[in-house]
């Protein structure tokens, strides 16, 4: 009966976190889902079932339509820029350069800072004044470098404010992508590369035909991690734009959810936004979970 006793102890060890997760993650998801189909507006909970009314209303509001567009633009630009920059940095660092550890840390450090802190700094750097006497931050830098055509309204641009948010987000997360790729490249057995060199392949061909194909799994992990960061992004946008930029051109669903829930006190509609965010993240994550689960079983 020894095995059973071990199992019992193991079960007891994970029980507290199991209970905590059941209540504080799944319980609250359930509660939010229930609220999202209720008429709850104002302070007192009102669980009158209203079906999908909140969702239909939501998709009909211009602000939420802009949010969806912004999330799409942000996600595509953010993920692709991070992947490209991360890969380039990793390949550069892979050249066994001197002081590699130093560079690795420099690129990775931004990730250690909270989005709120970087947001405050970038809010200042991305100062949107464009008239010459009031330039500041990046705009001033561009002007002094003679690059006046780069001067921009940044996050207050009336239609593409969200693109400006991609810059700080990429700055913060591309180092992390680099670390992932670097680990991936280093895990490729040196013999493979040696063999290719013996066969007369140059470095470019080695990256193209040996390294890149073996990084597919890394890319997938990176897309998952960056993707859910970008779909849920709140703190960075809050710190930079406060209320979503001019004409909500930099607004995102999470920001909308905060104002809808806690300023307008429309708890039902706020919960509906939260559920939409959860579903979009799930669309990204669930296939990945199924995939990893299957490969674990096979292994």
């Amino acid at each position: 009966m020894r095995i059973n006793r071990d199992r019992l102890i193991a079960f007891l060890m994970i029980l507290p976190s199991l209970v905590a997760i059941a209540v504080f993650v799944y319980g609250f998801i359930g509660w939010t889902a229930r609220s999202s189909v209720s008429a709850w507006e104002g302070l007192l909970p009102d669980y009158t079932f209203t079906g999908l009314t909140n969702f239909i209303d939501l998709f009909n509001t211009p602000r939420f339509q802009i949010d969806i567009r912004n999330t799409a633009i942000f996600t595509v630009l953010f993920i692709s820029t991070c992947l490209i920059l991360g890969l380039v940095l990793a390949v550069l660092l892979d050249q066994r350069i001197r002081g590699e550890a130093l560079f690795r840390n420099i690129y990775l450090f931004p990730m250690a800072i909270s989005f709120i802190v970087t947001g405050v700094v970038w809010r200042w750097l991305l100062n949107p004044a464009t008239s010459l006497e009031r330039l500041s931050g990046l705009n001033l830098l561009f002007h002094q470098a003679g690059l006046d055509f780069l001067i921009s309204k940044w996050y207050t641009h009336p239609s593409f404010g969200i693109v400006a948010i991609v810059i700080p987000a990429t700055w913060q997360m591309s180092g992390f992508t680099m670390a992932l790729y670097l680990a991936g490249i280093r895990s490729i057995p040196e013999e493979l590369r040696e063999a290719a060199r013996v066969d007369g392949a140059n470095e470019l061909v080695i990256y193209r035909h040996i390294v890149m194909p073996m990084l597919k799994a890394i890319t997938l992990s990176a897309v998952i991690i960056l993707g859910h960061t970008s779909l849920k992004i709140f703190d960075l946008v809050m710190a930079i734009t406060q209320e979503g930029g001019q004409g909500y051109s930099a607004d995102v669903p999470a920001l909308n959810m905060w104002y809808t829930t806690f300023r307008a006190l429309r708890f039902g509609e706020g919960a509906a936004i939260a559920i939409v965010i959860l579903l979009t993240v799930a669309v990204l994550i669930v296939p990945y979970l199924v995939y990893t689960f299957r490969s674990e079983v096979e292994a």
Partner: peptide
């Protein structure tokens, strides 16, 4: 608060277009 938020949204969107 709910009506106020709707007006805030309307003003913000007006600034866009």
């Amino acid at each position: 608060p709910s009506w106020q938020q709707d007006i805030i949204d309307a003003v913000a969107l007006f600034l866009g277009g």
